[in-house]
Write a protein that binds this DNA or RNA. Sequence first.
DNA 1: ACTACCATACTTGTATGGTAGTATGGAACA
DNA 2: TGTTCCATACTACCATACAAGTATGGTAGT
Lengths: 225, 225
Amino acid sequence: MDQFRMPPSRSARETVYAQLRDRILSLDLPPGTALSEKEASLSFGVSRTPVRESFVRLAQEGLVQVLPQRGTFVSLIDSELVEEARFMREQLERAVIRLACESFPAERLVALEDNLRAQRESMARQDDKRMFELDEAFHRTIFEGCRKLNTWAVLQSMNVHLNRSRLLRLVTDHAWSHLYAQHERMAQAIRDRDAETADRVMKEHLTLSITDLSMLKMKYPHYFQ
Amino acid sequence: MDQFRMPPSRSARETVYAQLRDRILSLDLPPGTALSEKEASLSFGVSRTPVRESFVRLAQEGLVQVLPQRGTFVSLIDSELVEEARFMREQLERAVIRLACESFPAERLVALEDNLRAQRESMARQDDKRMFELDEAFHRTIFEGCRKLNTWAVLQSMNVHLNRSRLLRLVTDHAWSHLYAQHERMAQAIRDRDAETADRVMKEHLTLSITDLSMLKMKYPHYFQ
DNA sequence: ACTACCATACTTGTATGGTAGTATGGAACA
DNA sequence: TGTTCCATACTACCATACAAGTATGGTAGT
């Protein structure tokens, strides 16, 4: 009889955590910003306890740095970490698409094709936000077809350090048609079981989509370590 | 004038976290065990707060599962997660050793050789514990030489799910001489800049060192999901 | 003018009591 | 015998109070 969905009503900790995370990733809370348990608890209207527990989680993900008895600060961007995140993503995505060329469920292949169709429509509408979602879903579907969803989850936590902002995203925003073409070629390679092509396209795809950090470092030096 | 080292005196949270983690990984707290904030706080002699915060960290690492208002339990071993952890480790270690064959600092190569010498000595002494440490240090040194220490750190957190115990370890214990021989060949391949050999040996090395889970699943079915 | 000191207002760390949801065992009932 | 209900004893969640370390600005002494 529970056809009525429970009210979302996540725990206070979850709410605080999710919102802080969003604000950090969107640079609404820029690197270096001082946080404060008390201040946060007041603005969220909860006690310090759930705020503290959120800080513990964020600290473990490397998004904030807690200095005992001094304060809690949004982490500066660590270029080495960003580069390694890119490295890991490249290696794992290439390995998985090679797997996909060995065996891939037909039904997931259909999902890729549906996704490509949706990408064309979103491009026509210049709906960038939707394109981001579809881009992510496209890659996710490949992992799904290879039964590597845990790997995908790990990659997502890496991405936290890659797109610590829409800054990095904005640079790629204007290359949608290029990225779409690569997606097309990937899907085709999986159909053709052509691992070599798939691997090559994926490598290009991922090296292109990551911008040179040095530019950002010049523009926002105080955001970096 | 601070030539005297500070007493370690980690925070209560850190202490509780580290010990719980150890006990879970060593199967001293087997999968499925019910934990309790209150019980843990009593046994550690601290209040529930640092215990709760430890639980938050452990939950994020997937070592415990918190069911609101029901209890906190040591996570069951997820075979899919274990297999994917193995997969990720293989891909990343192979990618890094290929990098090492392109360029590797002479000084780190010396470290590898010193490590190999120490491995020979430990094998002679049948010092398994030391061999584990040296094995780990060997792989770590390769990552270090490629400036991929963050990647190594990520791998370490994967390993949590791989060796959720010395059970898996024990199986490999008797193959030290084989593993040592592979280490030798890896170091040689790095010296020779022979990426193909290095990649092949590393692949064998990692597929061999991981035991078939199904055996463990048979023996301890209630530890698995 | 400069330095050492110290009160004060922060910060995070820890302890504890109360709240609400959940499992369980026994009693009442069919 | 089998089922339903409910008191009770748990659980994690949250709020609050206190403890302890740190930065800062003012003040007294040199």
